[in-house]
Design a protein around this nucleic acid. Structure first.
Length: 389
RNA sequence: CGGGUGGUGGCGCAGUCCGGUAGCGUAUUUGCAUGGGGUGCAAGGGGUCGCUGGUUCGAAUCCAGUCCACCCGACCA
């Protein structure tokens, strides 16, 4: 009595327990915590599993249940909240670009795509190798909307009451999908060194215990030197798998650098170094091999980003009419930079006709007079369209 | 919910149209060789053909029903 009863017909095979949307929890709590300007600013960060009742799921990118990180802040002034929301977008962008080696475009969402309750929704948009866009992170400037909805007021220095200013922002395990889809090739994963759990693998090649002992000794020296440089390294002397099998296995797992060490190498005081990103192999002297590998890891990190950025930049196409627009979407794919009349109706119509949505209005879009590709009405700047996940 | 495709050794598939004692690759087991790119040769083991019923001397195959999975769409701040 007075409790919820599960609808037997709607009962799931695997039951889920759902909570209210985060804002409801956070803001009803903030109401109790915030009285004075001295309580501000306030920031709560949490990692939580959330559920979206998607009719159609997609591994890593759109799953029913996923893990995400979300932050909620409250501020005394509008400027401070605005600054916070832009700062967090930069934090996400920096992480995705510098660590994941995935280039992103920073921008603002259109009203249609904006988070319900936000004044502005900012986003970072990445491009996958199949030409589809992926929203990799988001940050909202919430204005005073949630403060008003949950009645969260504070006294300023003059003892006058006002609603607080808010932001929220988040990224999710979708980033794992972005990492996989931005870099991998037909041989498997390619992980950027900065986030690769294993950065270097050493594969011995030998016949008999005598050779094995010699190679193991040399491998241990290399490992010690690499560890001095904080490189994450593994020596795979598993006798059940052959060298060729190991090569393929670690390539599939995306280990950035492989060092192969065999009798021929020892004779020449050398080792074979193979990099995963380009698949190049070359014989390198054992003198200062750890230092050289350390440098190579840095080079791979930069190369992966450059390669992804070159691909992304080649797939931003400026178009000036409807024919070009649909042609690029169908054949070339990627982002399409086009003029738009600024109305939600036009945006919706374009989506119905092409499945492409406005991914964002880039922060760095230059002001430029033009005509909307669909309606021909005047436009002040180009926006980025794409088919998205 | 609508449209499409499919369910056959662990995994990936052929066989189904045209009924006749279930096959290939891979994995696995054993032995020998091999070991610098997912080893080679030889010999083994492993299958209620999604499920139920029907037709037939005989069904993976034909018929009816049913369950499940995947893809496309609706959905997706």
């Amino acid at each position: 009595k007075g409790k919820l009863i599960v609808d037997e017909d709607a009962k799931l095979e695997e039951e889920l327990i759902v909570r209210p949307t985060s804002e409801a929890i956070i803001w009803s709590t903030y109401k109790n915590w915030i009285q004075s300007y001295r309580d501000l600013p306030i920031l709560i960060n949490q990692w939580a599993n959330v559920v979206r009742w998607e009719m159609r799921t997609r591994l890593f990118l759109r799953t029913t249940e996923f893990l995400w990180q979300e932050g909620h802040t409250a501020h005394a002034t509008k400027d401070e909240a605005l600054f916070e929301s832009r700062q967090m977008l930069d934090v996400y962008a920096d992480f995705v670009e510098s660590f994941m080696a995935v280039p992103v475009i920073k921008g603002v969402k259109t009203a249609n795509e904006r988070f319900a309750g936000a004044e502005d929704t900012y986003c970072i948009e990445a491009l996958m190798q199949d030409g589809k866009a992926l929203q990799a992170g988001t940050s909202h400037f919430l204005g005073q909307n949630f403060a008003k909805a949950f009645d969260v007021k504070f006294s300023d220095k003059n003892n006058t009451l006002d609603y607080v200013w808010a932001t929220s922002w988040g990224v999710s395990t979708r980033l794992i999908g972005a990492l996989i889809m931005a870099h991998s090739d037909d041989d498997g994963l390619i992980l950027p060194p900065k986030i690769a759990p294993l950065q270097v693998v050493i594969i011995p090649i030998y016949k008999g215990d005598e050779q094995k002992a010699l190679i193991t000794q040399k491998a241990n020296e290399i490992i010690a030197a690499l560890k001095q440089l904080n490189v994450r390294v593994k020596f795979d002397d598993n006798d059940n798998a052959r060298p060729g099998w190991k090569f393929a296995e670690y390539e599939m797992k995306g280990v950035p650098v492989r060092i192969t060490l065999g009798p021929k190498d020892l004779e020449n005081n050398a080792a074979e170094i193979a990099r995963r990103d380009t698949k190049e192999k070359k014989s390198t002297s054992l003198d200062n091999i750890a230092g050289n590998v350390f440098e190579l890891l840095g080079e791979i990190q930069i190369n992966m980003f450059s390669k992804a950025k070159a691909f992304r930049d080649e797939h931003i196409t400026e178009v000036n009419n409807w024919e070009e627009f649909t042609d690029v979407l169908e054949n070339k794919t990627g982002f399409v930079s086009a003029h738009w009349d600024g109305t939600g109706e036009t945006e919706e119509k374009i989506k119905d006709l092409t499945k492409a949505t406005i991914r964002c209005i880039p922060f760095d879009a230059k002001q430029e007079e033009g005509a909307c590709i669909l309606t021909g009405k005047p436009s002040a700047q180009r926006v980025l369209f794409a088919k998205a996940y």
